[in-house]
Write a protein that binds this DNA or RNA. Structure first.
Length: 465
RNA sequence: UCCCCUGUAGCUCAGCUGGCAGAGCGGGUGGCUGUUAACCACCAUGUCGUUGGUUCGAGUCCAACCGGGGGAGCCA
């Protein structure tokens, strides 16, 4: 007989029909004449209750040897439940223990575990409610992101993971090499250094920190594109919102200025939030109940809201006018710190805030310079709880200005020849932004540590599993 | 990288001014019950992160190291 997923079974009309389910046992409760098994197969947060009557010879015997964590297959009748916590249940006719899980050594218990402990058993944590729910939300969002762009005529562009330049300037890079490091360390003098002409690519190579510059190439030909893939940063960041390897979504749109860019970012976030609320209802209720009380209401509010849009100068004014004493004093020209972002989103505007037109000194070379020559058309989307979730900008599309800015920032112009070429031939105003998938999942689920919304997180000193 | 906190049973944690190592959960055994964080009784479980120091005596005090967490910076 074909296997029925638990999600489907729980939604079926219980008319005594025979079905087969398979999955992992969450708990077992034993009575004299009856055994109750809670089984989960990942298709939903809810378990299915399997009722085994002891007089029923085969299932009764098998049920005895079943423990928490065992994998089983059960065939039986789907019937209305007599209990009060579920509407349907499976009355077992056949029961098979597929893989046992000795109770003395199985690391997951019925009780609640700390996330810190579960991180150490990343191979088993998807069997918990929280990590199952996170995995389903993550999968939903990934698909919804593609759908959002595909429905709006964006082309999905695969930008390279290995790059031969660190042109993005977005952070520390992981080096990719086939040179024999041990031999280098032993042999050559420290002054000589490695001979990169002998390296795999004939020059130093790195893992990408952003697909943006490559995406700009395709936007300069195909109008609107997006990338969605892994990026790598070798920064020694030890926080609840940084990873060394993370997936990033980067749309890039031609004939689009900073306002169009903000419209896209805002619509994107609101559409995806509305989607996760409507399509992941059961999991979202779990997060609302157990992880971040009130998150459903707050996300619903955001889906219907209009994001506040202010300039950097206005943000500085607002912060200076407040009576709050910040650890880092605010003055025009300094970058906004976490405490400032929190204050703006949580205390002043009570919701997402888009800040634009930052001083050029604290932003990347490729952001379009404003006429005041002091600020650039960058934009950050700040949200309560997390701070910066999106960073983007209108790109500098004027050849002369871009070249000047590259030099001002002390970067080697020759490395950017192809990037400058885009401004030489058919240049066009264009904009884009980057959104970290994991941060967005944090925002939607209320999970406080980014290492708990990524299946196998990579962080400084940690590449287990 | 910096600052703060922390490390005791399988898990979560208590252990006071230094004096015999504890609880709950989980596990085992038995009982009871259409149960649902099931319930009741009994039983077992420790390199107190590691190394060194102070002391008659260290889980407790000191130092170094290792691991974990939070905050900051960098950013998405």
């Amino acid at each position: 007989m074909e296997r029925t997923r638990v999600r489907e079974a729980l939604r079926s009309e219980p008319g005594g029909q025979n079905i087969t389910v398979a999955g992992w046992v969450r708990t077992k409760r034993t009575g004299k004449n009856v055994v109750f098994l809670e089984m989960n197969d990942g298709s939903s947060l809810s378990n299915i209750q399997i009722v085994v009557e002891s007089e029923n010879a085969n299932p009764g015997q098998v049920a005895e040897s079943i423990t928490t964590g065992s994998s089983i297959r059960a065939t039986g009748e789907l019937v209305p439940s007599m209990g009060k916590n579920q509407t349907v249940e499976l009355r077992a006719i056949e029961l098979e223990l597929i893989g046992d899980a000795p109770g003395e050594t199985y690391p997951l218990q019925k009780k609640r575990h700390s996330f810190e402990y579960l991180r150490e058993i990343a191979h088993l944590r998807p069997r918990t409610n929280t990590f199952g729910a996170v995995a389903r939300v993550r999968s939903h969002l990934s698909f919804a992101i593609h759908r959002y762009f595909q429905e709006r005529g964006f082309l999905y562009v695969h930008t390279p993971l290995i790059t031969a330049s660190d042109a993005e300037g977005a952070g520390e890079l992981f080096q990719v090499t086939t040179l024999d490091l041990e031999r280098l360390a032993r042999g050559q003098g420290a002054d000589a250094g490695p001979d990169y002409t002998k390296d795999f690519f004939g020059r130093p190579a790195y893992l990408t920190v952003s697909g943006q510059l490559n995406a700009e190439i395709y936007a300069s030909a195909l109008d609107r594109v997006y990338t969605f893939g892994p990026t790598f940063r070798a920064e020694n960041s030890n926080t609840t919102r940084h990873l060394s390897e993370f997936w990033m979504i980067e749309p890039e749109v031609a004939f689009c200025d900073i306002h169009c860019n903000m419209d896209l970012a805002e619509d994107f976030l609101k559409t995806l939030i509305a989607g996760v609320l409507s399509d992941c209802g059961e999991d979202m209720e779990f997060f609302d109940k157990r992880i971040e009380p009130g998150i459903i209401e707050s996300l619903s509010g955001i889906a219907d809201s209009t994001f506040t849009r202010i300039t950097y100068s206005e943000a500085v004014d607002a912060l200076q006018k407040s009576d709050v004493k910040f650890e880092f004093p605010v003055s025009w020209g300094v970058d906004l710190h976490s405490e400032h972002e929190k204050f703006l989103t949580e205390e002043v505007f009570h919701g997402p805030v888009i800040v634009t037109d930052y001083p050029k000194e604290i932003k990347a070379f490729y952001m379009r310079l404003n006429d005041d020559e002091k600020t650039v058309r960058g934009m950050d989307v700040l949200v309560p709880r997390l701070g910066e979730i999106i960073g983007g900008s209108q790109r500098e599309d004027r050849f002369d200005v871009l070249q000047r800015r590259i030099k001002e920032m002390g970067l080697p112009v020759e490395d950017y020849w192809w990037y400058l070429d885009l401004r030489k031939f058919g240049s066009v105003p264009h904009s884009g932004f980057g959104l970290g998938l994991a941060r967005f999942i944090q925002y939607c689920t209320g999970m406080t540590n980014i290492r708990d919304v990524v299946p196998f997180p990579r962080a400084p000193g940690n590449a287990a599993f």
